[in-house]
């Protein structure tokens, strides 16, 4: 008991905060490295399903995105509540996909065009009708490598 009493009243030395900037900078650099700026605003909700057999998308420059889902509350008045397709930064119909793919192709060197992957970010609530239309459109445009975006989970036992 006496041990504790002795300390009371003694002026505690202030904790040095000199290393605080270093720690904060370390965190800062971490987030700077992992950050990927979102270049397009999502106008549809894409709550992707879970799956276990996933493949990582390696080359980001070779990936284009097709979003399918219900419009977010902000766009409900303009686009309605039915599931819609988002290409780039606007709503689209399935027949606009070929043009979108062609535009993307011009940004990729010719030797790598075979490796282009279309990532489909589709809300799990959406029915297959609209997804099937997009698939047909992709097949007609010759874009056959697709990736159904999903969250990872354990394989079922």
């Amino acid at each position: 008991m006496s041990k504790f009493k002795k300390k009371q009243g003694n002026a505690q030395p202030a904790i040095s905060t000199a290393s605080l900037p270093d720690i904060v900078f370390m965190l800062l650099f971490f987030f700077m490295v992992v950050t990927k700026m979102r270049d397009t605003e999502l106008m549809v909700t894409t709550n992707t399903p879970q799956a276990s057999e996933l493949t990582k998308l390696e080359k980001k420059t070779l990936v284009n995105f097709v979003f399918i889902g219900r419009p977010t509350p902000k766009y409900k008045d303009k686009a309605g509540t039915k599931p819609r397709i988002q290409l780039g930064d606007k709503f689209a119909n399935p027949d606009e996909i070929p043009l979108f793919l062609e535009k993307f192709k011009t940004t990729v060197p010719e030797s790598q065009r075979q490796a282009i992957i279309t990532s489909m970010k589709v809300d799990s609530e959406v029915t297959m009708g609209i997804v099937g239309d997009v698939k047909t459109s992709l097949r007609k445009a010759g874009q056959l490598k697709i990736n159904y975006s999903a969250k990872s989970r354990e394989r079922t036992k």
């Binding site: 992709l138 097949r139 010759g142 990736n147 999903a150």
Partner: peptide, 12 residues
Amino acid sequence: EDKGVLVKLPPW
């Protein structure tokens, strides 16, 4: 979180 199920579609 760019991961997903890779699928190859048949040509049209």
